[in-house]
């Protein structure tokens, strides 16, 4: 398999460029990390439509909220650790409670940030964002889905959080795939014996895990839950109804992320065993992205092992 070339963050600048051509109200707020978040590619073409407020994440959110109040269609992006972490109360008071359609884009999520280590590896952003009523939370798996979700979020009537990563990831979707919409999910592989709900970098891991499971005669269904909130509830429930067990996989703390969302959904509607593949009770650390994925168990082989456990636990 050729080495992946594109990261989800690479889609950000392109999405803004594509959107700006069609909608004069699209603007971006940057916190002096535009070359890292790829907002700089947009700024080079439309310098008058990007507001760099410097290293001031709280003010970034407020500026974005004010721009939205003034009728602009706003994207605001920085490293998720600081944008969502430091700007949390501004997001709550100035975006989520008033329900403003601000698109908050957190880049550099998860341990695959790599060498920068724990301070920069955001592992709790989904927990912080998915608790808000009416906040759409999106986690694309690859460049194509990131581009589609970032662009389709433009017409959202409420706030949106999009989680992006630093490192290149394998392509999952064919270029130009349409119909990757906020609030949705995609059954990428059909199966009958275990449901794998995944998002972000764990989608390609889940597809590889499904190949391994197939060789062990366990038929896995893989659902890309790129909309972590609201979840693609019907797809998940239809699937667990058939398979009777579930695995979740995400590059996030086990607490508060996709896994807990799926577990709450399933336990309330059609209880089946749910096993989580996630980061358990540890912050990140320095290392190469590949080493860290292995160290924290964010791999296809961990999904295989969780799937076998879930499958043996099911009541049939």
């Amino acid at each position: 398999m050729p080495a992946p070339e594109r990261s989800t963050r690479d889609a950000y600048g392109q999405a803004l460029i594509d959107l700006a051509a069609a909608d004069p109200s699209v603007v971006a707020v940057d916190g002096d990390v535009g070359s890292a978040t790829r907002a700089a590619r947009f700024a080079a073409l439309h310098p008058d439509r990007v507001f760099n407020v410097g290293m001031a994440e709280q003010d970034m959110i407020l500026t974005a909220a004010g721009l939205a109040l003034g009728g602009k269609n706003v994207y605001v992006s920085s490293y998720a650790s600081f944008l969502v972490g430091r700007g949390y109360e501004q997001i709550r008071s100035a975006v989520a409670i008033p329900g403003l359609p601000v698109k908050i884009v957190g880049s550099h999520c998860g341990v695959t940030v790599g060498e920068d280590g724990a301070s920069h590896q955001m592992l709790e952003d989904l927990a912080l964002m998915r608790v808000f009523p009416d906040m759409t939370v999106l986690v694309p798996a690859d460049y194509t889905s990131a581009l589609a979700l970032l662009k389709n979020a433009v017409s959202s009537r409420g706030p949106v959080y999009v989680r992006l990563g630093r490192s290149p990831v394998p392509d999952v979707y064919a270029d130009g795939d349409e119909g990757i919409l906020p609030g949705g999910g995609r059954v990428l592989r059909e199966g009958t014996e275990v449901t794998v709900c995944c998002c972000g970098i764990m989608v390609s891991e889940a597809l590889r895990a499904a190949e391994v499971l197939a060789r062990q005669n366990i038929s896995a269904e893989v659902i890309d839950c790129y909309s972590v909130s609201p979840l693609p509830a019907q797809s998940i429930l239809d699937s667990v109804h058939r398979t009777g067990c579930c695995v979740t996989a995400e590059e996030h703390f086990a607490r508060g992320g996709l896994g807990e969302g799926v577990a709450a959904l399933v336990s309330g509607a059609y209880p089946v065993p749910v096993k989580q593949v996630a980061v358990f009770d540890k912050f990140g650390q320095s290392g190469s992205p590949a080493e860290l994925q292995e160290y924290y168990g964010l791999t296809a082989s961990q999904i295989v092992s969780a799937a076998v456990q879930a499958w043996t636990m099911r009541r049939r």
Binding site: V27, F51, Q58, D59, I61, L62, T63, A64, A65, G66, L67, A68, L69, G70, G71, K72, E89, Q90, R92, S93, A94
Partner: peptide, 15 residues
């Protein structure tokens, strides 16, 4: 939430 009004006003003025 105190301390947030001016940031919102800035965004409005920019818009």
């Amino acid at each position: 939430s105190l301390g947030q009004g001016l940031g919102l006003a800035n965004g409005l003025a920019l818009a």
